[in-house]
């Protein structure tokens, strides 16, 4: 089996165009193998137009990256479907299908990535998606090691498996925009307030614990999913690619830390060594260990 590869997930927040372009200029130089591009969260976010994404995609491809264009997770209207078709017809880049609408558009026409927002929880479903053209599957964020290993054992020949390994977890989508709701604005007159929150808008419990993050129509975990100390087990479980989800600061420090940990014969990291980059929240890894996602479980073989 080849070495585990590293992917940069799509930027889930709404950043200004210059910030996005600077981010991907840095990505082109960073030790990542795969880069996912595009706006997967909110159709109203248009700092980057399709032409901008495609130009960025070409620059990254020239830098030797595999580029995938991520499609919307929630489609509601004919306009959303038109945007999806434009993305699918845009060119030579593979699409990450984050909704069955995208699978419908791509099935039998082009190989695609079955994204983390398709509900794939068993090998039968995965086999069916592979027959429709899925070349890679990004597991749902709530998947456990045991579930993933069971599915990987029955995976269709040639199908790659990717795991969301680092970042705030995208947990839910709604028709309602919670950022606009916070500002007492209607969704289609939202004033693009998401742009004021490059790591999302934190939500705390009434007793002050960071709990979730509002990111427009998406709700994320406040804790940062971090499988850095579980990477050896991740690599053994059948995962081909691990995904790092961009955050406002320090993403490429995280990339370098994961790259170092994935290197052949990398020494196990001391889990007490702490964060490798400034993190917007505490770490968690519960999903991987089959418990509540927000939990933190000491990596195997270590006494906590």
């Amino acid at each position: 089996m080849s070495a585990t590869r590293l992917a940069l997930g799509p930027v889930l927040y709404y950043w200004a165009r210059e910030r996005v372009l600077a981010f991907y200029a840095e990505a082109a130089e960073a030790p990542v193998d795969v880069v996912y591009l595009g706006e997967a969260v909110c159709v109203r976010r248009r700092e980057m137009r399709l032409a901008d994404w495609l130009a960025t995609a070409r620059r990254l491809a020239e830098a030797g990256k595999e580029v995938v264009l991520s499609s919307q997770a929630l489609l509601e209207s004919e306009a959303d479907l038109r945007a999806l078709r434009r993305l699918a017809e845009a060119g030579t880049f593979r699409i990450e299908a984050n909704d069955m609408s995208a699978v419908g558009v791509l099935a039998g026409r082009a190989a695609f990535v079955a994204g983390p927002h398709l509900n794939v929880y068993n090998a039968r479903t995965l086999a069916l998606l592979a027959r429709l053209g899925a070349a890679r599957w990004v597991a749902p964020v709530e998947i456990s090691r045991a579930q993933l290993e069971a599915i990987a054992a029955d995976r269709p020949p040639g199908l790659e498996i990717e795991l969301f390994a680092h970042g705030r977890l995208p947990l839910a989508f709604s028709a309602r925009c919670f950022t606009a709701r916070h500002y007492n604005l209607q969704k289609d007159e939202c004033g693009f307030r998401c742009m004021d929150h490059p790591d999302g808008l934190p939500l705390h419990t009434a007793d002050g614990d960071p709990f979730l993050v509002l990111n427009g129509i998406q709700t994320q975990s406040a804790r940062v999913y971090a499988l850095l100390d579980d990477l050896a087990a991740v690599a053994r479980s059948g995962v081909d690619i691990v995904r790092i989800s961009p955050q406002a600061q320090g993403t490429f420090d995280i990339v370098r830390a994961y790259r170092a940990a994935l290197a052949p014969a990398a020494p196990a990291r001391n889990p007490d060594a702490g964060a490798v980059a400034p993190a917007p929240g505490e770490a968690c890894n519960g999903y991987w260990h089959g418990v509540a996602g927000l939990a933190t479980i000491r990596p195997e073989g270590r006494i906590g």
Binding site: A73, L74, H117, N119, L171, A172, F173, G293
Partner: peptide
């Protein structure tokens, strides 16, 4: 459900 059904993992995040 204010979230898209089938697209919400809030409950497993908190309870498994």
């Amino acid at each position: 459900c204010v979230m898209v059904e089938g697209r919400c993992q809030l409950s497993s995040y908190v309870t498994g």
